[in-house]
Amino acid sequence: MTKSHRPPTFFVLGTLTCLLAVTILFAATFGAVQLRPDDIVRMTLNHLVGAGFTPTWRPQDEAIFFSIRLPRVAGAALVGAALATAGVLFQGLLRNPLADPYALGVSGGAALGGALGFLLSISFSVAGFSPVPVLAFFGALAAMSLVYGLAQSGGRAPVVTLLLAGFAVSAIMGYAVSFLLIVNDRLQLNLPRVYGWLLGGIAVTQWSQLGLAVLMVSVAVGAGWLLRHSLDALSLGEESAQELGVAVESDKRLVILLGSLLTGAAVALGGLIGFVGLFAPHVTRLVIGPRHGLLLPAAALVGAAFLVLADLLARAILAPTEIPVGILTALVGGPFFLWLLRRERREYRL
């Protein structure tokens, strides 16, 4: 822990906040439809402070910007922050560099829930969410509870058992999705949709969807930050953490609970977007080091900026065609991550 080599906290967070702000502005300016930046500024001022500029733009430009593009950019930022934070929490807890937000069975549980949302002929709406995201959210929570329940014995849930149970539950539920798709009579209709959904895509279409999610993500990120000392101690191993006075098992439960809320919210807003939750924590750690007090908020900002950017590409590069954002997070984030890994050349530690 060579503290002196690290840049000061306020500098890191200030820079990253600016980076996120610039990315959001950039992503809000561009998209499938080309809007003039000065028009955007004027229509925003009209909206916010009633500036009263005479519209030099068409009414649909306003609809595109305020009703379609902005909620989606905000959703991408939120999902990115949630996945990155969950990634930090799980990597810290499980002390495994390959842990991501989906490590404890979530991908399988969310996929199963989402697939049921597609296959069941049900129709309802909760806070602007259709059955697929709602069931995916609960599928994620259910899978994680199941994994924790299975891994726990005598009040302890060893990390290795958690990981293995997570892998098995995820595989079982994932293949249950395949089974459902194969036996379902309307299979060929659902397959492309379920597959497209599994690749992820920011599905925020209404501001109302963001309210609940903002609350959930900010509470979980804040609570995660309160656990920073436990997470730092856990990186030394559970026994050492115990000796340092960390209530290992109860903190573990808390981390898993927060991680599931974050991942569940992310899944509801964006399907199963891969790689962000793995990539953002590692990139951040490579640059600013492993201390969780700084790592947690910094990784959240990095994840948010990265996903906003990836979603911009998903919307814009093949417009009017939409690309599932999960493809871009891996194609764009992967090489950058590898480049950073090579460049740092120092021993990497969680």
Binding site: A32, V33, I64, I68, T205, R315, P320, T321
Partner: peptide
């Protein structure tokens, strides 16, 4: 959407509104 690369495509809501 006569300019899509294929017979069927996933399109963004922005483009639908813009193409009116």
């Amino acid at each position: 959407f006569a300019d899509l690369p294929g017979d069927v495509g996933r399109v963004g809501a922005e483009s639908i509104v813009q193409r009116d």
